[in-house]
Simulated scan of single mutants.
Amino acid sequence: MPKVLYDTICTFTELMYFVFHGNSYADGAEAYQMEVWIRHIDGSRFKSDAERQKVIQFS
């Protein structure tokens, strides 16, 4: 689970987003769900539908 979390945060950083809140739900060694709330580095939300789709496709 820590590697998946680390990789997710690094990828969002490369896409110029920062994670301002996140939750992960796990049972033992198996992760069931991970939620992250992100914003663009400049503080804005998605600037276009194409950008939204790019982030959705990543996750």
Rank of each mutant, 00 (worst) to 15 (best):
A29L: 08
V36P: 01
S48C: 03
N23A: 07
I9A: 15
S59P: 00
D49G: 09
V36H: 04
L15Q: 06
K3D: 10
I9F: 14
V55P: 01
M16G: 10
D7P: 00
H21F: 06
S59Y: 05
Y25I: 04
Q57R: 13
T13N: 14
I56E: 12
F12D: 02
R45D: 11
F12Q: 04
I38T: 02
L15M: 15
H21C: 09
H21A: 14
I41G: 00
Y17C: 04
I9K: 13
I38K: 03
G22Q: 06
T11H: 14
A50Q: 14
M34T: 10
N23K: 14
V36C: 05
L5D: 03
V55E: 02
E35V: 13
R39T: 04
D49W: 08
D7Q: 12
C10I: 08
M1F: 09
S44T: 14
D42I: 09
E30Q: 13
S59K: 00
Y32A: 09
L15K: 13
Q53F: 05
A31N: 14
I56Q: 07
E30L: 10
D27T: 13
I38Y: 05
S44H: 07
E51K: 03
I38E: 06
F18A: 01
T8D: 05
I38C: 04
Y25N: 11
I9T: 05
F18P: 00
F20H: 12
